[in-house]
Design a protein around this nucleic acid. Structure first.
Length: 683
DNA sequence: GGGACGAGAGTCG
DNA sequence: TTCCACGACTCTCGTCCC
């Protein structure tokens, strides 16, 4: 890495600097709609002065230091790369970029609609006297949003109110009223539905619509649809919104921000236009690239625009996990999600409360009781039972800790939650806390909502055939890193997924909300792409390298031999499953209930009255059996990686799913769920 | 060696 | 006067156990 490319984020961070605030890396100076004319230095100085010396500030400095260390580590790794390394990574990167380019789909027209300063606008509607005055929704602790008058002063969402007031002494504070916001959100959604019945609402004030069909049917352009839609929203609600029209959701999201407020921007379905658009687009505009990732890319690689992702592809290849590198390449190519993802299902439920820091154990237990009751109430409202309970703590010094326990049984009552949460909390004493939270996850699948189309059914379980969560890797070619299951459908960047054939370099859609691998650890050359480079033999030919797997109509890859077989959940009482030849294996006696109570296979106890649960349990073992049979018969398409190790029986066996000792329900398969849920993310 | 789990971090609205 | 939220999701790594 040339020195000139390293901008050294903290080089001017000397405490002795005459402008110490310049080194205070706050998000509040980041570009946001309506803040173009803001005096960034003034904002930075005020935020710094309001913050310095506080516990929060100290914690931010700690985090900053950690980030700088990561950056230094990555720079060191860059310097270690030899010419040969770089050349090899260059080849890998070029090949991967070509593969990704081949997935480009310019046939769809997506629109991202974003309400302008939604909460603030709703409040102004109900109180017109706020019109034209700087106003923010939230409290002195934290703002939810600010209107455009307030943004001129540097006031913005997620800013503490006391700082906002310093920036704008006339600022009017309005408390949040979600009932109102939900009402208006409902009105907008009725309009969205007319244009795309399957539109994707990502929050109260944002949605993605696939307007391909409506454009074709009515013979109109995306721009015309956007105009009409925005007008409808205004007529129906009195609120303005902005829109972005583009061939995929990633770009549509970026576009909707360009002419905010009350404007729109259209990016044509043309590769040249996209590449021109991307060429100067700052990386921070991309959903999924936050402060940390931006700093790493800028300070280690000198990357500030999306186009530079491609120019530095070899280094990205060398230093990041495959999923992260793919994400960056997709950004550089302007690729995003074009399919309509399935509705996502809830994976966790949590609540947390901030309070004045205290070490009083009685008080903290009292807070815990409140949290447990709140959580239990919400779970009962949604009919959920979960078995992983996580206690979140924020200490007086803003250090965040989480402590989790996975239980053998599902719980939902406040008593159960409190019982286990108390144990977790007790282990932390003595401690002074300013926040406590409880999260429950690993829901009993039936409770998540059978009507939810995204619910992972047994059929999918069978199709995937692996509860390990590494299922997608089964189709990966040589060198695929099984630990690298990050390449999933991300919420914000939404990489393309193919509906028919999928290049199986990584079958999963790249993440929309890519969590960039920890550079501190991931920068080692032995990882991921590096692994391909260093350990695996060069592919014999391209056919091996681009192993094409089939995928179902949802774009979910499945192994060939099961193609065409009905994969619906087996009928209750008909414990029958197909083998690869389509014949039916009788599994009806798979589970025997010892003493009419205990599962003969795993010891799980279910009384006779639990008919549904017993059936599900039986299904679970059935699936497990099928999986075993499938593995034995090599039903699954051998992946390149597998091909390369097929002779190694030990390794092959290692890929078979281990039997669970504890299987409270037949659906303990979170990692797979994770995959399906991820592929159904909205963006 | 691999899977399950715990912990921490990053991101978004 | 008031002094940095909340909820949800994802990814990665380390550790333990089989």
């Amino acid at each position: 890495m040339a020195k000139s490319e390293v901008s050294a984020a903290g080089d001017d961070a000397s405490p002795s600097s005459s402008r110490p605030w310049q080194s205070y890396n706050t998000v509040y100076t980041n570009a946001k709609a309506g803040m173009e004319g803001v005096d960034k230095e003034k904002v930075q100085r005020i935020v710094y002065e309001m913050s310095k010396g506080s516990k929060y500030f100290e914690n931010e400095e700690r985090k900053e230091g950690y980030m700088k260390q990561k950056i230094e580590n990555m720079r060191a790794q860059c310097l270690k790369l030899t010419k040969a390394d770089i050349s090899h990574y260059q080849k890998l990167a070029e090949r991967r970029i070509l593969e990704l380019e081949a997935t480009r789909d310019l046939s769809r027209i997506w629109i991202h609609v974003d309400m302008d300063a939604f909460y603030a606008a709703v409040e102004t509607l109900s109180n017109p006297s706020l019109q034209g005055k700087p106003m923010a929704v939230g409290t002195l602790s934290m703002l939810s949003t600010a209107n455009y008058e307030a943004r001129k002063f540097g006031v913005r969402a997620a800013m503490p109110g006391f700082i906002a007031r310093k920036l704008c002494p006339e600022l009017i504070f309005v408390p949040t009223d979600f009932k109102k916001y939900n009402h208006y959100s409902g009105l907008t959604r009725k309009i969205f539905q007319k244009y795309d019945p399957n539109f994707l609402a990502t929050s109260l004030d944002e949605a993605y619509l696939d307007i391909t069909r409506i454009c074709k049917e009515r013979g109109v352009t995306g721009a015309e649809v956007a105009e009409e839609l925005r007008e409808s929203v205004y007529n129906e609600t009195g609120l303005t919104c902005s829109a972005g029209v583009a061939p995929n959701r990633l770009l549509a999201k970026v576009c909707s921000d360009i002419n905010k407020p009350n404007g729109q921007f259209v990016l044509p379905n043309d590769r040249m236009a996209i590449m021109a658009f991307i060429s100067t687009l700052p990386i921070r505009k991309i959903g999924g690239i936050g402060k940390v990732t931006e700093n790493i890319l800028k300070d280690v690689f000198g990357i500030t625009t999306c186009e530079e992702m491609l120019q530095k592809s070899n280094l990205l290849c060398a230093l990041f996990s495959r999923s992260s590198a793919d994400f960056f390449f997709c950004v550089g190519l302007g690729l995003g999600g074009t399919d309509t993802p399935e509705t996502k299902m809830r994976k966790s439920m949590s609540n947390e409360r901030t309070f004045s820091a205290t070490g009083d154990e009685t008080l903290l237990y009292k807070k815990l009781v409140e949290l447990a009751e709140m959580l239990s109430d919400e779970m009962e409202q949604e009919g959920l039972c979960g078995r992983t309970l996580t206690l979140k703590l924020k200490t007086a010094s803003f250090e965040v800790r989480t402590r989790a326990v996975t239980l053998p049984n599902y719980i939902s009552s406040s008593e159960d939650i409190l019982k286990h949460a108390s144990k977790l909390l007790k282990a932390e004493f003595p401690v002074s806390l300013r926040l406590m939270g409880l999260r429950i996850s690993q829901f009993m699948e039936e409770n998540v909502g059978p009507s939810d189309p995204t619910q992972r059914t047994l059929s999918k379980f069978i199709v995937q055939g692996d509860a390990s969560g590494k299922n997608a890797d089964e189709c990966l070619p040589l060198g695929s890193d099984v630990s690298d299951n990050a390449f999933t459908h991300d919420t914000h960047t939404d990489f393309p997924t193919n509906s028919g054939e999928t290049i199986s370099w990584d079958l999963r859609a790249p993440t929309d909300n890519p969590q960039i691998s920890d550079p501190n650890d991931r920068c080692c050359i032995s990882g991921n792409y590096s692994e391909e480079l260093g350990k695996r033999p060069e592919p014999q030919n391209d056919e091996l390298e681009i192993n094409v797997c089939k995928s179902n109509e949802e774009g979910i890859p499945f192994p060939g031999p099961l193609e065409g077989i009905s994969l619906d959940k087996p009928k209750r009482g008909a414990n029958c499953a197909y083998d690869e030849t389509g014949s039916c294996s009788d599994h009806k006696d798979l589970v025997v209930w010892l003493d009419d109570y205990k599962c003969s296979l795993c010891g799980t106890e279910l009384p006779p009255s639990f008919v549904e649960e017993r059936q599900e349990h039986s299904d679970f073992h059935l699936a497990e059996r099928l999986q075993d049979e499938e593995s034995k018969d090599n039903l699954r398409w051998p992946t390149l990686k597998q091909r390369s190790v097929q002779s190694n029986d030990t390794q092959n066996r290692g890929r078979q799913r281990k039997k669970k000792k504890l299987s409270p329900t037949p659906t303990k398969c979170t990692p797979i769920d994770s995959f399906f849920v991820k592929t159904s993310q909205n963006f």
